[in-house]
Design a protein around this nucleic acid. Structure first.
Length: 434
DNA sequence: ATAGCCTTGAGA
DNA sequence: TCTCAAGGCTAT
């Protein structure tokens, strides 16, 4: 097996972090984990963990708890069925083509990184600025508005068209958008999997979650309408929303719907409220940003920012009234949207990305770190599998998606998150859906 | 029991 | 013929 001089994460065994020696039982692992997995399966071994079934597995400690080691083997995707019942030696099995594609994907990712293409290292920081510090204020354009203008959920063809009176200089077009039904959203999903990974297709809960998609956009649109009516009632019926207030309302309601979506997703529900809060606290802005990006990629038009209400903001117009930081932000945002559009990223892939952002095991002081990690691994597996099965002709799509995800992580909005109290209140709220 | 090295053999 | 991912062997 050849190794490149600069060892990257891909060269490390996903079980113990040792050097990989090749593809073994479904994925790249080291020689010792290969042997361990083989012995365990061939000899039908059962282990017991003397601790709490969450032992750390690394190169130096991998021998200490075979139970947790084997659990991790399964968790990362090692395939029981690749161990031959008849013990026949040599030859090839059905995983051959999968290894080949995986190799090609990795190669493409490497060349992308080396070639300075779409990489997380060289990508301009879309949202690395602190919007509460750097953004230029113009007229009514409070930073919060700008943050809020970037938030909303996917539009449905039945989106109500809200008419606002922009008191800022932005042009909001209320012409209906040419919405198409979200691609990849139903029947073809997972219908003909080539190489099912153990933890995704055999997990019907995850499958349901991915089919369900992100926050409920219809509910969001209804909420926005209700809030606008409420506002209008408060003004004795003589109130027309400004762009500013419309966007604030959209942002507030989008955040509520995002929390609602997370709170009612099966895997998230299983977490303690303290962990739920930590996760949401760390990623809410990324989720909002991804929502905007998602809508632009799936339904948006060039040069315009499509809002959840179906209205559009002319980006040139917006940029002409904005400071340099916001201009840069808009420009980079457009670049990201363009890249994802070229890759034909579909609704399901965006849903996977939302879950990957939500279930971030790197968030500090998580109590159920292992569980969160395992959910993320499952979603990664499902995303890889889906991407491979739907577009094997477009090699490198998965690595692009992975980079897009890294991109979002690394460019995390540094704005002030909502208070714990608000999150706690939302998380503890009675679940109206059940 | 582990893990590094060896042998095997279907498919490219 | 070569490749490389299976299983096998064996020193530790």
């Amino acid at each position: 097996m050849e190794f490149s001089p600069d060892v990257c994460l891909e060269d490390l065994c996903p079980v113990c972090g040792d050097q990989v020696s090749g593809y073994h039982y479904g994925l790249l692992t080291c020689e010792s984990c290969k042997g361990f997995f083989k012995r365990t399966v061939q000899n039908n071994k059962t282990y017991v963990c003397v601790e709490y079934q969450q032992c750390r597995i690394d190169k130096t400690q991998r021998k200490r708890c075979p139970f947790c080691r084997f659990q991790k083997c399964i968790q990362v995707g090692m395939r029981l069925e690749a161990v031959r019942a008849d013990r026949m030696r040599g030859g090839r099995n059905k995983f051959g083509p999968m290894y080949k594609r995986d190799r090609a994907l990795k190669q493409q990712r490497r060349s992308l990184i080396q070639g300075g293409g779409f990489t997380s290292e060289c990508a301009p920081p879309v949202l690395s600025v602190n919007p509460y510090r750097d953004w230029t204020l113009i007229g009514e354009l409070h930073p919060v508005l700008i943050l809020h203008s970037l938030t909303a959920a996917p539009i449905s063809p039945a989106a109500p068209q809200l008419h606002s009176t922009p008191s800022s200089n932005w042009t909001v077009k209320s012409e209906p958008t040419s919405s198409t039904s979200p691609p990849g959203s139903s029947s073809e999903l997972f219908s003909d999997r080539l190489y099912p990974l153990p933890l995704s297709p055999q997990n019907p809960q995850l499958e349901l979650e991915l089919l369900r998609g992100g926050p409920d956009e219809l509910q969001l649109q209804e909420r926005i309408s209700a809030r606008l009516l409420q506002e209008q009632a408060g003004w004795g019926g003589h109130w027309t929303p400004t762009t500013f207030s419309l966007m604030c309302i959209m942002a507030d309601q989008t955040l509520l719907c995002t929390v609602e979506w997370a709170r009612t997703s099966i895997s998230f529900k299983q977490l303690k409220v303290s962990d739920q809060t930590k996760l949401l606290h760390s990623c809410w802005s990324d989720l909002l940003l991804l929502d905007v990006v998602c809508r632009q990629v799936l339904f948006g038009g060039e040069g315009r920012l499509l809002l959840v209400t179906g209205e559009e903001i002319d980006l040139l117009d917006m940029a002409s009234h904005a400071g340099p930081t916001l201009c840069g932000l808009v420009h980079r945002g457009q670049e990201l949207v363009q890249k994802l559009y070229v890759l034909k990223v579909d609704h399901r892939e965006f849903t996977c990305m939302k879950f990957l952002i939500l279930f971030n095991p790197e968030v500090k002081q998580l109590e159920e770190h292992r569980f969160i990690e395992s959910v993320q691994e499952q979603v990664k597996g499902a995303l890889l599998e889906y991407t491979l099965s739907t577009s094997s002709h477009l090699l490198g799509r998965f690595s692009h998606l992975a980079l897009a995800e890294d991109y979002l992580y690394e460019t995390h909005l540094s704005g002030e998150p909502p208070s714990d109290n608000l999150l706690l209140e939302m998380l503890h709220a009675k679940d109206r859906r059940t």
